[in-house]
Computed example of a mutant assay.
Amino acid sequence: MSRTLLDEHDLVLFDLDGTVYRGSELVPGALEAIRQVKHDRAAVRYVTNNASKPDHEVAGHLRGLGLPAASDEVSTSAQAAAGMLSEALPGGSRVLVVGSPALAAEVEHVGLRPVREYAQQPDAVVQGHSTETAWWNLAEACLAIRGGAAWVASNTDRTLPTERGELPGNGAMVAALQAATGRSPAVAGKPERPLLDRAVASAAASAPLMVGDRLDTDIAGGVRTGIPTLLVLTGVSTAQELLSADTSMRPDHVAADLGALHLPGAESRIQENSAWQVTVEDDRLRLSGSGDPLAALRALCAVWWAAGGGSPVLQPEDADAEQVLEKLNIR
């Protein structure tokens, strides 16, 4: 039997929002795929940019959805942000928290003192997603940042996938403070390295795989950290965005869902294949052939990226190619 994609790795780093679940709903196929990963005894880390919940609550939420999950298998951007601050500040330093009680607890856990007001003379600001963040929280942080406080953001995700659709994420709130202060934060979560480095180290892994639904965070984070990546088309990023992606966010594999972990790696790897003929002529990306739409997408990416990439002009050469491009919503 052919080696699966999972067989090539000793750790799978799963993004959560848009990859494993959307709010309170599992992504189709996620339950079976992750249970099989655990059955095959590969290490798992649930790696989330969302800093609003502690690791034990995230693990509890996953178990409530039927997934196998322990607290020590959860790596959050709140943990990574607190770790960054603990390395930069003396013990007992005051940190103004813009975010959830879980973020404040992580700050306290590393020996720093969480505060909520500028009048408490914070040495740093840490900012993470919370549905309770209000104007006054941003105002306190604005004063601290303008006053010279260090600033760490758990992540800069502009949106957060939910069962209702994409809603404002921590990055939207970070952007407000950037506009108000003229400064930018150090970032703990994907696509920066701290969160992924922490997760890999916790598993003592030598061959990790990053799996996610967002090119700009999950895949870019893997590329920046030197980790092979699998993009699943179950969340934010689209086939159109994948084809146009620059080198900083190009995955090694792309698949419809997490089931690709248990198939041969060649089936999801971005490469040319005999079923689809792809050429670049007269600044147009031409496609002909028949078969699996995702195989066509992988072939298109392989040829287009080798030619330099950018925003292509697609030219279907036959009816099958035209139908596939419509299914992929690539224009």
Rank of each mutant, 00 (worst) to 15 (best):
L231D: 00
V58P: 00
S75Y: 01
A139D: 06
E87M: 08
T48F: 08
H39P: 00
Q120T: 11
L258W: 10
M249N: 04
P194F: 12
K190G: 04
A141E: 13
L143F: 09
T229R: 08
N155W: 04
A175K: 05
G308P: 02
S71F: 01
S274P: 12
D7H: 09
E132H: 15
S86L: 11
Q315L: 13
V174E: 00
P90Y: 14
H39E: 14
G83C: 13
A172W: 13
L261S: 06
M84E: 02
S130W: 07
K53C: 01
G222K: 05
A275G: 03
T247C: 04
A295T: 06
L13N: 01
N273W: 11
A139G: 01
G235H: 14
D218I: 03
H129K: 03
V125Y: 13
G289L: 13
G309K: 05
R250H: 06
A245T: 05
P54D: 14
V20M: 08
R198A: 15
S248D: 12
S77Y: 04
V278W: 01
A105Y: 02
S206G: 14
R250P: 02
A33I: 00
L16C: 08
A176M: 12
V74C: 02
N273Q: 06
W276V: 08
S75A: 15
W304I: 05
S248P: 09
V95E: 00
A43K: 15
G147T: 12
S288A: 14
E272T: 15
L196P: 00
A124D: 03
A150Q: 08
Q121N: 13
V223G: 01
V200A: 12
P228C: 13
D55R: 15
V152R: 06
R183T: 12
P90R: 12
H39A: 10
A149P: 06
T131N: 10
R214H: 07
T181W: 10
T279S: 10
L160C: 10
N50I: 03
W304C: 01
L287F: 07
W305L: 11
Q36F: 04
L328Q: 02
A80P: 01
G92D: 13
D17R: 08
V280S: 15
L26D: 01
W305E: 08
V74Q: 03
G235A: 14
I145D: 11
D246A: 07
S288M: 07
Q240R: 14
Q240T: 07
D55T: 09
T217F: 07
L195E: 01
P54Q: 08
R250E: 11
D40V: 01
L297Q: 09
A266V: 04
T131M: 08
W304D: 05
A302W: 11
V27C: 06
P191K: 14
E32C: 02
E106F: 11
G309Q: 13
A81I: 02
S311C: 02
N49A: 05
L26I: 07
R224S: 09
G182S: 11
V107N: 00
Y118S: 14
